[in-house]
Amino acid sequence: MVTRTRKLGRTAIPRLLGVATHVGALIPLASILWDYWFYQLGADPIRDVTLRTGKSALILLGLSLACTPLNILFGWKQLIPLRKVLGLYAFLYASLHALTFVWLDYGLDPGLIREAIFQKPYAIAGLATFLLLLPLAVTSNRWSRRRLGKRWNQLHKLAYVAAVLAGLHFLWLVKGAYSRPLVYGALLSVLLLIRVPPIREKIVYWRRQLTKRMLGRSTSDV
């Protein structure tokens, strides 16, 4: 009986996590559609959609990059498969965000788009983020991973660069109120620091020592 429930738990948790990820990642899109349907998008609906898709993309990209550090910190291996799903959803929202900007907002006006791309630092950073995410999304499938071999890992390190550029895009966009982009930047820095090999090894070592000690104590208690 005991082994059976344990086995069930082992497959149920990752599946539950997977479902929760899909549901959670689709909630922002659903709420945008809902608000569109019921005319709740506010006084400037295009701006509202732009901000909301952008925010979702940023959060999902951050969460995708948080899986590995959380695994290092707490040994949560179940999170590793979520990196891809979260990253793809981040790309979905980034695409919607870019489309909203150039199509709904700028009406595909080449003059306006050119002005943004060549003159506005935030737009340059945003475009660069999107262009970096594009090959990652295209090569996220198993076939590409096999084809690219070692280079796949190198290529997908671009996700860090994309996240930093996305943060700059955010920072250059806000008007004076820098607290939110700075919080994002701080969190991202922590996530990146945890991955630095010497730090990573130290953390893993401490965690193993800690679990060993805790296991030792619990057995001695028994």
Binding site: A43, D44, P45, I46, R47, L104, D105, Y106, G107, D109, G111, L112, E115, A116, Q119, K120, P121, Y122, W172, L173, K175
Partner: peptide, 19 residues
């Protein structure tokens, strides 16, 4: 006179969708 963030060449009138 351009602004680092917003296009000053066009604007969106609240209630309209095209600039």
């Amino acid at each position: 006179v351009p602004h680092p963030r917003w296009s000053q060449a066009t604007e969106r009138r609240i209630g309209e969708s095209a600039r």
